[in-house]
Each structure stands twice: as C-alpha cells, then as structure tokens.
Computed example of a mutant assay.
Amino acid sequence: MKNLTIVFGLLFFLITSVSQAQEDIVHMLNGDEKKGKVTAVKSDAISFVYSGEDLEYELKKQNIHKIDFASGRTEVYNQVQNSSSPSNANANTAVTSTAAERKNKIAVLPFKIISNNASLTSEGMMEEVQNTTANSIRSNTSQVILQDPSETNAILYENNIGEAEASKMRPADIAQLLGVEFVVIGSANIDYTGSNTYGSSRTTYKDKQERDRDSRKSSGKENTYSSSSSTENYSTNINLKIFNDEGRSVYSVDRTGIGTNLNKYETTISYLIKRSPWGSKR
C-alpha cells in the first residue's frame, strides 16, 4: 500500500510538471506572471489565453518584460527598471522609445484644475483644457509634431498614471514614456467670483377714443414689459511649463486672464502658446 502511494505521488508530480512545461509564462514589468498560451504576436501587443480558460486577452508589449515560451525559448521586450532609482516613480512604466524617435514630438498632459467650484475640478474639465491647449499648438506653432491627447491619455492609463501620480514623476520620465521630446504640464486656477444680474422694463400705452354727440371721452391701456439677465463671473490664471526629455525647462509662464467669462482661459492659453519657442508670435 505504501508503494502504491509513492507511485501515485510520482505520477501526479510528473503530470503537473508536464502541464507546467506546456505553459507560456509572460513576465510583466510590474512583477506579475501570467501563465497560459501566447496565441499571436502583433507589432505592439500579444494575444494571450490564461491556462484553463478560453477568453483571449491582449497585452501591450510596452508593459511586458519577457516571455518564457513552453518550447524553452525566451523573448525579452523591455528591461526591468531598478526600483531603487529615484527617477522610477511608477514601477509599471517602461521607456521603449529612442531619442531619435522622440525628436520634435510634443505631448500635452491633462491640466490640473484648482477651483472653489467643485464641478470644475472634474476629470472632464482637465481633459477639456488639455484639448484646448493641444488645439492651440496645432494652430499656432510650427516645427513640432503634436501627439493627439487621446494617445497621450491612453498611454498614461495603461501605466496607471493619473494626475496625482504624474505630479510625482520627473518630466523627463514622462516625456520618454510618452515617446515625445517635449511635454506640456499646466494648471488652471479658475475661481467663481459671483454673478451680476441686469434688468430692464418698458411701458407702452394704447389710447382709445370714444365720441358721442355731447362730449369727447378718451380711455387708455398701460402695458409694462420687463426682462432680466445674469452673468457668471470667474477669475482665471494659467500656469504653463514645457520640459524636454532630458528634464530641462524650455518654457515657463504664468498669466492671469483678462475678462470674467469662464471660457476666457482659452484666450489666455492661445496667447501663451503663440509665444512659446515654436509659436507664431515668437
């Protein structure tokens, strides 16, 4: 009986070893290991099915350290960065671009919004000001290639980098991660300062005359119309900085917007971009 137990134990070990040997192991840059089957290798991603499952997933190559295939072959995509390095603010990030590939490319990060109005500090407002800045770069600069904000935000999302995480990273690391030579980092301070209400009224008269044989009588009707309107007032200040992929500041400005309308920040951003190193008013 004891011998049978040993035999079954050896058989279980052999079966398990063979099963594991038939798995591909994907080593991620964040330290995770994914075991299963690599079903396809694309230019920027791989298709992967977990062991015991049928659903196919897509894993970006920029997040993969290496793949140990069941055949025994190993394919390395990115080197793991030293976590003790002070420039490595996020363990999931990996630089896959070269200086030549980043040349003259520029990206705009979502703006940090500071406001006494909580509705203006939303992610949507951050991206709205980001898009306004990107559109101004398209219209008012030359010699730089703009990375579309949707691509910028996708890369940040894939690396779990939000506004809070980005503020703790070195600009050079962000630029290299995004694959650009220049990165625009900005903040908008938009405070609600109250509202003004304006009103007006107008009175009209309609006369009616009645005649008879003995006298002339007249009667009138008075109509009064009134209207009112109100405007919301805001104080806006834009801070804008541009760094290169070596971490050097190439442009840094701070300007208070003229006017009280909320959309005055657009005019302020346009003014600053036009006077950037590649701007039309430089």
Rank of each mutant, 00 (worst) to 15 (best):
R202H: 08
R102C: 14
N116F: 04
I145W: 06
T141F: 00
Y157P: 03
G179T: 13
N189F: 04
K103S: 11
K103C: 04
R216W: 11
G162A: 11
Q176Y: 05
A118R: 08
V95K: 09
S187F: 07
S215H: 08
S218Q: 11
A134R: 05
Y192R: 05
Q209P: 11
S200M: 11
A164F: 09
V95N: 15
M169F: 09
G194D: 11
E101I: 04
S142V: 12
A107H: 10
K168A: 05
N131S: 00
A175T: 09
A134V: 03
R213I: 11
Y205R: 07
Y157A: 14
G124T: 08
A99R: 11
A99S: 14
K217D: 12
G199K: 15
R102A: 13
S97I: 04
S139A: 05
T121I: 01
N104C: 05
Y157N: 12
I185N: 13
R138C: 03
A164P: 07
S195K: 08
S200R: 11
D207W: 07
P149A: 01
E158R: 09
A107G: 06
N159P: 01
T96F: 06
P149V: 00
G124N: 14
T98I: 05
Q209V: 11
R216H: 15
I113L: 01
S167F: 04
K105F: 07
Y205T: 09
D148K: 12
T204M: 09
F111E: 01
S139M: 02
I190D: 09
D148Y: 07
E101C: 05
A91Q: 15
T193F: 10
V184R: 14
S122L: 03
T193V: 15
A166G: 00
N104H: 12
S150P: 02
T133E: 01
D173F: 14
L156F: 01
M169W: 12
S119H: 10
S115N: 02
I137P: 01
V180S: 06
F182K: 14
D207F: 00
D207E: 08
E101S: 11
T133A: 05
R211C: 13
G186A: 12
